[in-house]
Amino acid sequence: MRTNAVPLLVLLVLAGPVRSYGQNATVNNDLVFGDVFPGIPKMITKYTPGAAAEFYVSGTAGAEVTIDFTLPTYMDASGYNMQLLFREDDCAMDSSATPDQTNPGHDNLDPWHTITYRLGSSGLTIWLGGMVVPRLNQKDGDYTAAIVLTIAYTGN
């Protein structure tokens, strides 16, 4: 019994440090367009600190995750709509220890499709830009829309 149990106890000790941690996604910044003029589309690029959307994902370093956005096509204000566009290169991310929004490690990603990436030792920071297209007679007011980010481990 003693000779068989020791390797198993060693295995238990080893299992502790390598156990998987759940990933966690937090919001650092909304996608903020600020003042918009009727008839004049306004774009916020993913490189714009403080205006582009920013998510931070933590989890097991090196683990592969899938990243899915649920993107709105309109913003709303008291029943009035305003078109919201996302292009196929409006997303960027960086898993380095010092994420750089102006020069991200992984750029021009398509937020309309599943993105697969590995978490870094400092997690993963994701940025998203977009464009609003107000009509010439767009009703004035404060418009909002929800953008949902879903993160899941692939198991790889």
Partner: peptide, 29 residues
Amino acid sequence: VLLIMLVVPNIKAQEYATIHATATVIPAL
């Protein structure tokens, strides 16, 4: 069984986060 208990409860299948896109449309001319 202990090993499985140590590992499995710490795995989350999915995580969600929601942000808002915001804009203020100024009065039309």
